[in-house]
Each structure stands twice: as C-alpha cells, then as structure tokens.
C-alpha cells in the first residue's frame, strides 16, 4: 500500500535524525500531535504576556520597565513565529485562536496563577522562563523542521529573560527585609506550579509514547523536570532563598536532587479550568479579540478598496 511505503520512508527519516519538512508526507497522528503541541506553545507565549503585563505600569524603575516591556514583546514575537510554524501544518491562525477560545486548545497552566507582587515578575523570569528553556533546548532537536528552527531562535531570547528574572530576585533577596520577604513569598507560591509545567510523570503522561518515538519530544517530562530542579536549587542558595520543599535533598548516589510530591490534583484542577486566573486570562483574550473586530474589519475593507483601485488604475 502507498501509505505503508510512505510511513516506512517517514520513519526512516526520523530514525536517521533528518528533519521532517512541511511538504513531506507525515502520518495524520504526527500532524495532529504537532498542531496540538505547537499551538499550545504559541498560546502559552501569548497568554503568558498577561500575567507579567500586569506590572508594566508599576515597574519600580525606568530600566526595569524597559526590560519588562521588551520581554513581553519578545513573547508576543515568539507567539507569532510559533503560529507561523503551526500554519505550515495546514491550519490557520484564526482556527488556532478559535480553538483557544472554545477550549479545545490549551496553554501552560502556570499562567493561570496570579502575579501579585513585583517579586512574582522576577520569579516568573527566573523559574518559568528557566523551566521553559530546559524544555525548549531539548525541543531544538525536535523532528519537525519549522518547530525546531523556531526553538533555536526562541531559546536565545529566553535565556536573557531567565537572567533578567534572576537579577530581579537577587536584588530583592539581598535588599531590605521587606524585599527579601517578597522574594521568598514569590518563590513559595510559584515553585510547585513551575514544576507542574513539565506535565505529568512519565508513567501517567498520555502523549509521551508516540511523541518520543517520532522524536517530537526528545526527553521525557520527568527527565526535563529533574534537570530544571538540579540547576535551580543552587541558584536559590546563592541568593539566600529557601526552596518550599522540606523533602528536597541532594542524592549523592543518583547524582541529583530528590524532591517532595507534586500535587497532581491541583494540576488537574487548573488544567481543567479551575485555577485562580483561568477565567480572567481567557476573558481578557476574548475581550481584546471582540473589541478589536471592528479594527480588523476596517483594515480588511481598506485593503480591498486599495486592490480595487489598483485594478481600475
């Protein structure tokens, strides 16, 4: 059969670590998995602009304000590359946004937590971007060409964000007692939700099997989570903050940190819509989309008139 031969060729390419490109044949499941994963990634970048966006007007120095604005812009830019990557799989940005609005597509649960203080802005850069980098460095080797290339570009910018976030946390942790308290509080609230960003344990992950076989994902959720923990614990120690996990300790035998239990009930609850800010984030996105409809229509109408004039001329 034609399909079987194509599947064989496809798998041979995957096994040889060649990239799959938009015009190559690919199994429907591969395409579906990629659309789900890349669009989730794109939506996360875009929805992720909201929590930090809360603090643009309240950033405590002009420099901090400029850095934060630039960071949020980078995220919007990442959203755009990723929507474009996803469009190479035969789906439009409008459809992707429609899926976000009707709940079919998800975004990272971390953005459903509130950003309450300036320290939370630092913690997001340090922890959330730090976690995203671990995941994205691994995804630079993903088998789908456009996604892989988007990751290479995005990783460069994310590492700035992580350093900038850590710098904010460092300043607070080494600042006045009130600032240190603010930093510790942010770490306490955001540490566990950050660990959940990597998704369920490998044994419970619905999507890991095929994604690993087809090299969409190159490392498992648990491997990536562990790498993040190992690099972050030391960074906290350097600035004198305490991880909110009494079971966290170095395991010399395994050469890694052991950590306490993640509350997967909370994860499920938030993924399924019952987090502190799920409704707010989606309402904001919908509101901007609806309120912007007349602007998009005006741009379309104007462009159509220009084309008509050109034709007449």
């Amino acid at each position: 059969m034609e399909n079987e031969k194509q599947l064989e060729q496809f798998e041979a390419k995957i096994n040889a670590d060649s990239k799959i490109e938009p015009k190559d044949w690919m199994p429907e499941d591969y395409r579906k998995h990629l659309i789900r994963q890349i669009s989730q990634h794109a939506h996360s970048e875009v929805i992720g602009m909201q929590p930090e966006g809360n603090w643009i007007t309240r950033a405590p120095s002009l420099r901090a304000k400029l850095i934060l604005l630039a960071k949020i812009q980078d995220e919007g830019g990442h959203g755009l590359y990723l929507y474009s990557s996803c469009e190479t799989l035969g789906i439009s940005r409008e459809e992707l946004i429609e899926q976000l609005h009707n709940g079919k597509a998800k975004y990272s649960t971390i953005f459903n937590y509130p950003v309450l203080t300036w320290a939370d802005v630092g913690a997001i850069g340090w922890l959330v971007d730090g976690a995203a980098i671990v995941n994205q460095i691994s995804l630079q080797r993903t088998s789908y060409g456009p996604y892989s290339r988007a990751m290479v570009r995005i990783c460069k910018e994310e590492s700035f964000h992580q350093r900038q976030g850590y710098e904010i946390m460092g300043k607070l942790a080494l600042g006045t007692p009130e600032q240190k308290e603010m930093a510790q509080d942010a770490l306490n609230r955001l540490w566990w939700p950050t660990l959940m960003m990597f998704g369920p344990h490998d044994a419970d992950s619905a999507h890991t099997g095929k994604a690993m076989k087809w090299k969409i994902k190159r490392e498992t959720n648990d491997e990536l989570r562990q790498r993040f923990i190992d690099k972050t614990v030391q960074q906290a120690e350097i600035i004198g903050l305490t991880m909110p996990d009494p079971e966290l300790k170095w395991n010399a035998e395994k050469n890694k940190y052991d950590h306490g239990k993640i509350d997967w009930e909370e994860f499920k609850r938030v993924v399924n819509g019952d987090g502190p800010c799920n409704k707010k984030r989606m309402d904001n996105h919908l509101k901007a989309h609806d309120e912007g409809a007349w602007v998009r229509e005006a741009a379309t109408a104007y462009a159509a008139k220009q084309v008509k004039e050109q034709v007449v001329a």
């Binding site: 602009m49 909201q50 604005l69 919007g76 959203g79 901007a288 309120e291 912007g292 602007v295």
Partner: peptide, 14 residues
Amino acid sequence: SEWSSKAPIIEEDL
C-alpha cells in the same frame, strides 16, 4: 504600554 495584551491583533500589540 497599557495596550499590552489588549490590541486587535498580536502584530498591533507588538
């Protein structure tokens, strides 16, 4: 800057 996450399309947000 108050337009962040409120513009009609991402390109305009940026």
